[in-house]
Design a protein around this nucleic acid. Sequence first.
DNA 1: GTCTATAGATTGATAGAC
DNA 2: GTCTATCAATCTATAGAC
Lengths: 192, 192
Amino acid sequence: MSDKTTRDQIIEAADRLFYQQGFDHTSFADIAAFVKISRGNFYYHFKSKDEILDAVIALRLQNTKKMLKQWEKDGAQPIDRIGSFIHILITNQAKILLYGCPVGTLSSELAKLDHKSHAEANQIFSLCRNWLGKQFAALGHGDKADALAMHILARSQGVATLSSAFQDDKFIAQEVAQMCDWLQLHAKNSTT
Amino acid sequence: MSDKTTRDQIIEAADRLFYQQGFDHTSFADIAAFVKISRGNFYYHFKSKDEILDAVIALRLQNTKKMLKQWEKDGAQPIDRIGSFIHILITNQAKILLYGCPVGTLSSELAKLDHKSHAEANQIFSLCRNWLGKQFAALGHGDKADALAMHILARSQGVATLSSAFQDDKFIAQEVAQMCDWLQLHAKNSTT
DNA sequence: GTCTATAGATTGATAGAC
DNA sequence: GTCTATCAATCTATAGAC
């Protein structure tokens, strides 16, 4: 923890604060207070606030890739892997209830800001979409694999938004169970 | 249009700009330029920016009530009424692709800002939830009516978020069709 | 009821000492 | 590499003329 570079500490603090407070509403003063450096020191590591955002998005892309790889390693069958994806709603439920989904809320904010990095932020969605599509393709849903991936992604987003609005963790549990039931209906032939 | 009070013009401009740019990112200067009044004039009509937000939320609550009443009038059967709700995704698709759902994105933003009016903004969700629950109850789903209402609400939110991220109007059409299919499966006895 | 002028705080960003 | 000091712009909000 203490041997991390200042640059990495800034990125991690920004990652956290952008999620909790939003990108636009998080100031350098906020990040500086968190990392315990002066505001002027930022500009040795980054040219602008937008550059910090890009670094945060890059970090999230990297972490998402790691997570998907891990699920691919842990889950022998595509069904198990997709199940892992669905269950992040429960794994991260405490944070989701407070701040929603980090991917969806950042994408929505950058859309409203008409921010140049909006497309980059959406690559996190694309990563999940393609990975889910690959799993559904492995299940035998050739042409419908992408549509099924988008369906699961959308339902996860909706659960995050509504559970956060109503502070309802039971709703998360209900919907996760329903999505798993739905998944079983789409379990064609995996290995056979 | 021209005989509207300045106060109403401010509220309508704020309603539009809060949706397109976000609440926090919209300044008095933005609203003033839209309504063509001076910045100082705001404070004759409102005490603070938060008061404008409350007025905007009150307006949205009022408009939502009107819309739900109209659907109840137009649709003879609960199935038709729920169908009207699902189809707002298509009716408002142009705006949704650009700015997402006005209810969901405002709720998410106010959650991150830890804003005191977050609960008020969520009343728009509650309005829809209770109305949908009433329709499902009329369909004969006594104890499951609220869960079905939440399910439809969540799926609508997810479709709004993802279609906006991927700029995909075909995805909206696909999911709306699927939601209508799902709805038919839940069409127990309505009038009989 | 609307305006101009301005206060007071905060923002992102820069310059230069150490 | 980190700091202090500071700039210029912007923000919400206020005061007072008309």
